[in-house]
């Protein structure tokens, strides 16, 4: 299973990078969303996908899924959510101020050169 997941994650990264390299700000943020999905799945996969039961006691199971990667991913999900929310509002504000979402038009000003 891990082998197949490695390819799926590679595909997610590929799509994410392709989107991040685009012109539209919204697509770049969508790309970062895909990137964090890929990263989260990567952590989970690298921790090993074996284990019969969720990491909760009282199930009577002998092997649990590894709890540590799950804790790490939980932290990562929340942080990436915070950052994504911030970026989205930033993008929204920059539309308001600059009237464009094309980053090839956002090159700063020459005033300070």
């Amino acid at each position: 299973m891990e082998i197949i997941m490695a390819f799926v994650i590679g595909f997610l990264f590929m799509a994410a990078v392709y989107l991040i390299l685009s012109k539209s700000l919204l697509r770049i943020i969508i790309g970062t969303g895909l990137l964090s999905h890929g990263a989260h799945l990567l952590i989970l996969t690298m921790g090993g996908l074996g284990g019969e039961a969720p990491p909760v006691l009282n199930e009577g199971a002998k092997t649990f899924a590894d709890p540590l990667p799950q804790a790490l991913i939980l932290t990562a999900i929340v942080i990436s959510f915070g950052v994504t929310a911030f970026f989205l509002v930033l993008a929204y504000r920059s539309y308001q101020e600059l009237q464009t979402d094309d980053i090839s038009l956002m090159r700063g000003s020459d005033e300070y050169e």
Binding site: E2, I3, A6, G10, F13, M14, A15, V17, T45, M46
Partner: peptide, 19 residues
């Protein structure tokens, strides 16, 4: 396209090797 495919391949290879 080339760069993004390369990044995807890289991630896959690392994942495979690491695993």
């Amino acid at each position: 396209a080339i760069i993004s495919i390369a990044v995807g391949v890289m991630v896959t290879l690392i994942a495979l090797s690491a695993h």
